[in-house]
Structures are given as C-alpha cells and as structure tokens.
Write a protein that binds this DNA or RNA. Sequence first.
DNA 1: CCTCGAGTTGCGAAC
DNA 2: TGTTCGCAACTCGAG
Length: 541
Amino acid sequence: MGTNPECAVHWIRKGMRLHDNPALLAAINFKNEQGKHVLLKPLYILDPHFRKFMRVGPNRWRFLQQSLEDLDKKFRALGSRLYIVRGKPEEVFPDLFKTWNMKLLTWEYDIEPYAKKRDVLIEDMAKDNKVKVEQHVSHTLYNTNLVLKANGGKAPMTYQKLVSVLESLPKPKPPLDAPTSLPKECQGVHHPVEHLVPSMEEMGLDGATIPPCKFPGGETEALKRLNKSLANKEWVRKFEKPNTAPNSLEPSTTVLSPYLKFGCLSVRLFYHELKKILATGPHAKPPVSLLGQIYWREFYYVVGSDTENFDKMKGNKICCQVDWDTNEKYLEAWAHGKTGYPFIDAIMRQLRLEGWIHHLARHAVACFLTRGDLYLSWEDGQGVFEELLLDADWAMNAGNWMWLSASAFFHQFFRVYSPVAFGKKTDKFGTYIKKYVPELVKYPVEYIYSPWEAPLSVQKTAGCVIGLDYPRRIVNHEEIHKKNIARLSAAYKRNKANNASQGSSSSSPSKKSSKSSPAESKAKRKSTTQTTLSFSKKKKE
DNA sequence: CCTCGAGTTGCGAAC
DNA sequence: TGTTCGCAACTCGAG
C-alpha cells in the first residue's frame, strides 16, 4: 500500500471551483523534500452528517451532484480527477493519510460550528500523521477573524457598523485565476474505478420525480450566470434590492446565491467584477445595492462566526427569547403552501418546486410564520428553508430568520407584512399566484389575493370552492397580527427585564478574556464577547 | 370662468 | 426593505 506515490490533497467542502481557490493552488504548488511537485488529489467526502443531521431536499442534492460532476470534468481536463470518498471525515482520513501517502492537505476555512470542530479534529489527526495542513480564507470576502479583531474582538452588531469596519480594512485582493494546466507531477488518475462522482440514484434522488432543473449546479454554470447578471451595466449600477419584485415570473435578481453558497462562484470574483462596473458611472449604494448584498453576506458570516448557538433561540445571547407556539398543523400548512393565503402559498410552492425564492418573498413568508401570523418559532422556518433552499447557508439562514422574526438585528416588530396587500404592489393581477397556485387560475383579479372573500357563486364559476378545492385561510390576519404584536411586545419587555437583571448581577462566569490570535485554529475561543453583545443590542431599542 | 365632487397623491402618525 | 388611516393638497371633468 505504501507504494502509492506521494500526493497533495485539496479537500473540497464548499469552494467547489477552480477559479480563485488558494487552497487548491497551494496543493498544486506544493513541493516535497526533493523539491518536486507531487500528485494532486482533489477530494470530496460524502459525509453522512449531511444526510442524517442536516435537512437537504432533492433540489440541493441535485445541485451538489451537478457541482461535483462539473468539478470532475474540469479536473479531468487538467489530467487529474475528483476523488469522492464516502464516510465520516474523522474515520476516512486516518486511512487516507497512510494509503494515499499524503504529504499535504489543504482546505478552505469554514466558520460553521460543525465545520470548525471537524477541521480542528482533522488538523490534529494530520499532524499526528506528519501531514502538513494549510487552510485558506476564500469563502468570504474578508477573513471573519480579522473583521472581529478590527472591531475590538467582537462582532459588529449593525450592518452600518460592519461596513465601516470593512472600510477600515485593506481592500480584498484580486481573485486568483483558475489553473489552466498542472505540473506534470501533479497529473495522473489513480484508483480509476473507485471514488466516482455519485449518481443521482446514490444520492437518493429519483430523477423522474423532481421537477426540471432551473438552476443547475457547478462552476461552469456559476460563471455563465455571473456574466449574464453583470452584462447590463446600467441595471447593475441602478440595482436596489427593495425595488426588485418578489413575485415576478422570472427572477428579478441575479440568483447567484446558490453558487456563492456552494462556492461554485468566488465572492471575490463577484466583488471585483462588480467594482469594475460601478466605476463606470453613478450607482446605488449599500445596503440596497448589489455590493450591499455582498456585505449582508459578510455581516451574517461575521456575527455567525462569533455567536454561540447562533442557529437557536436558547443559549443565544443576541436572540430575543420569545414564547413561540408549537403547532404541527400550522407548520405543515405553511411548509407545503396550504395556508389559504395565495401569496404565501405561491411562494412556498415555488420554494419547494424550484429551490429559490426572492429575498422579499422570504420576508413575507418568514414574517407570516413567526411574528406576523402563525407565531411559530423561527427555528421551524429555518429548518424548512434549510431543506428546500438551494442557497441554504447556515449563517445567513439563521441571521435572516432572527431578523424577520424580530429576534435580533431588527426590532420594529409592529411592521408586519400583509399576506394580502404586499404582493399586490408588484403583481396586481396575481399572475405569480396563478402560476404556482393553479387552483385559482380562473379567479377574478379582485379575489386572487383573498379568495375567501369571493361569493360562493364566483368560487363555483372559477371551479375552486374555498375549503374544498383550496384551503380556507388558517388564520385571520387582521385579527391575529394585532394579538401577535402584543405578545411580542410582552416578550420584549420580559427580555429587557431579564437582560437588565443579568447584566447588573454581572456574575456571569464567562469572563475568560482570551485574546486568541485570529489565525489560531483551536476551537475553544468565543464566549468573551458574549456579554458585550447583549448590551449593544439593548442600546438599539 | 367658476364651483363642485370624485379621485389621486403625499405625508405623518399609530400600531 | 410595513400597513393602514386620516388629512391636506391637488387634479380634472362636469355642469
């Protein structure tokens, strides 16, 4: 077994691309003790964790599968290939270190809690096996640890604060080119029949039962989409998110998010291409501009990297503790687009079908699920989004759910989206609803957003009787949203009182004040910033 | 030319 | 990156 040639492994997790991939380049450029390049083995591990503990729906599995195939194709064109290994990383690597004769292992730095813990473990294992490890930051525009450091060791808790911190840091470097060729020694296809890219069937997908693919995965598609999105410079410069429609029949925004989430597209490439266009004329500004959208991503990544239990309410110091209800029937109705509110249902059905919905559509359904109407926990919604969204991204999913439920960052809980009025602003004829809720296709315009108001004769003529062919609305928005505002107001008062009493006693044992270096990769960091975070939150209201 | 009323637009306040 | 309401100011066609 030790006969295998020395190799440098680039472990792909996110960062599913060849362009602007410093960890990949490090593996390619690696030289052994003889000063020679070694065989390159780009590796992807199908980790059962993502089957058992994460909710991944068919659309995202397919996106992953397509991204892997694209990678394999690109590596094969360079005289290499993609190696796919099944199993838990901590069980897989000890064997690979030896049998693959691994000299170097590189990967892209990941801030997610599961990844952080995993990577510390693998790094230790690698060291025990005399395998060098290199980590590179390339999933975010800025190194989250350096952002924290620049802000006095704690996360900026407002968007504006984050932007000012980013502006104080050195500008992001230009993106790195994809390798166009590999050194001779890096090339070679070993274990030719093993470690193949999984088929749709292996990923548990019946190709026939999932809808046609609207947003195919992979770097090739990502770069195509980037070029298409940035082709109209005027549109790019004028882009303001609030002025794009949540309910257009074709996306009114770029839909680059799935590609950024998987790292098929480098955010740094996006940033630099965008900057070039912005320099050509007057343009919109953050937070609403396209650049502003990139900064939102940085914002949630930075806060998420520094907040314990960021994806939960309990034990999460920045999250308002709210007495959310538990109601399986409501959750089920919401998740499957059967609330009886056509605008809400159309969005949720588009989400399940296509894996992507507009940002403002996410606002509408998230508000509806939580503080607006159903008063269910944002964690319930987070789970459904995690399953169904192609771009489900840990930090942004949790952060945005806290925002929309007024649990953190955003506190104007009396600003409630109307599930009837909101969609009308950009789609007064309800064509979006008719596309995704075809039961209502024959409804007259005046009832399309509120079909329960249609007289029975109209319902019959339209071939869709409410309560029979389409659900009766599960809550009365006009009544329930006022009650919910009152409940949330009470929760805020309780929260404020709790925070005040905890703050004054000041007996919290979490005063470790360890100023660990940002490059430091041991996981036991955190907790020092937590007390200050809850204060800055209080200041906001 | 004026007056009237219906309809619109824009703003601030309250929830 | 809310909705609704009331109010004032305005437009515009009818008479």
